[in-house]
Design a protein around this nucleic acid. Sequence first.
RNA 1: CGGGGCGUGGCGCAGUCCGGUUAGCGCGCAUCGUUUGGGACGAUGAAGUCGGAGGUUCAAAUCCUCUCGCCCCGACCA
Length: 480
Amino acid sequence: MADEKKLTSQSEDYSAWYNEVVLRAELADYAPVRGCMVVRPYGTTLWENVQQALDRRFKETGHVNALFPLLIPMSFLQREADHVEGFSPELAVVTHGGGKELEEPLVVRPTSETVIGYMYSKWIRSYRDLPLLINQWGNVVRWEMRTRLFLRTAEFYWQEGHTAHATYEEAQEETLRMLGVYADFAINDAAIPVIEGRKSESERFAGAVASYSIEAMMGNKWALQAGTSHMLGQNFAKAFDIQYLDENNELQYCWTTSWGLSTRMVGAIIMAHGDDQGLRLPPKLAPYQLVVVPIWRNEDQKRAVLEVTARIAAHLRSSYRIKVDDREEVTPGFKFNEWELRGVPLRLEIGPRDVENESVVMARRDIPGRAGKSVAPMAGLSAAVGDMLDTIQADMLDSATVFRDANIREPEDYEALKDTVDHGWARAYWCGNPECETRIKEDTRATNRNIPLDQEGAGPGLCIVCGEPAEEWSYWARAY
RNA sequence: CGGGGCGUGGCGCAGUCCGGUUAGCGCGCAUCGUUUGGGACGAUGAAGUCGGAGGUUCAAAUCCUCUCGCCCCGACCA
């Protein structure tokens, strides 16, 4: 930071920008343990808003919440071959308890498929018990090599849904339903356009038959997997004996799914919307939807302004998440910058002129500077604020969508693809051969993000790498 | 685990090469006053076992040995 007041600009150093925003907006801080973070109150409120928006959708689709234990017997992980292999390098293991070495080590859950599978095998007896639709809000630990606040931390907070079904079709339907729920949330609440798709074999969750993701484009044009949904087939059902008696009194293995969305979504919100001034939070999720900054020059004005401010705030508080910043030790200009850094979508400025004219100045965070300012009459202010917040929400989605679409190209050939993924995402035909996928990764550091569910317009084509026939196109990009 | 960087008041750093007053600077913080429509200013003040341990020396933030931790860049991952 050359200028201590300003953030490092995104163009100068995107990851420095990211770290500074997270710290200075007081979303999170580094914990004493490497790779762990403290989610500060402002970040927690944002996460709680994410939770509420998702939880409502989970309930609407028939799910209920439960809480499963943090510690899992090591042997559980080993029951599903791919699952152990996938997770063993990143497990935190508890070897001692009560001052004694444990007979069997316990792992701190990296995810809960195994314990939940164990419990499901106890709970499920009959087809009448199905489908079983449970979600858990909690934390997990994965010993990551390289960590970044929110994006990849050793411990993170998330929800993991785990469902069991009688048939393949129902489980597959559930997998895609929840992917759709994530997409709906991302688009309509987080104002982040996302692409729903299937993960390639190499990117598939350890133990899954198929994994699906929503992929979002960040401000530096890298991709971020913002949510995943897995079709687990009967892999875990067989490993944990999750069986039921069907209508014909025959024993069948269940079909299970799991799906998760983590505090990484906070990182997505930061990077999808942030600018050189700091955060830009979508109104639906922002801890404060609007901040009111009173302005005065002398005692008389102060009294009048604060009185009007209090009245307006009391009125707005019933409908909006509002913060009145009446600190006297900092100037209005300082407050403007601080709340812009912290991403509050809308600011109301109330000064002597406004008191006189019975108006307020509204400043939109998504449109910096003078262009984002307008004057609104105090009469009918609540409705005007509501309209403005709706407009900001919609405009943020629009501009994120325009940005994303402007940075997705369809390269003609392999040489063009190499260039494309340097500046954005590529949508290209791929034959599905892992060797072609690996080659792209080695040549460009870009990975297969997903094979979009929406294949409209895709006909038979030729693989961008090997030229063999390809049925589907997929997205390729540098990713977090 | 490989490469790089860094540990000095709350934060950011200088000082370390070449040992030598009372360890400085900016920001922040506290008090008072003047300010307040885009990051105010002045005065006064509080705050540091120089990451830790051992060693060399009359003398160590500074030199030597060991150690711990953090950050950044790679390979792995949501």
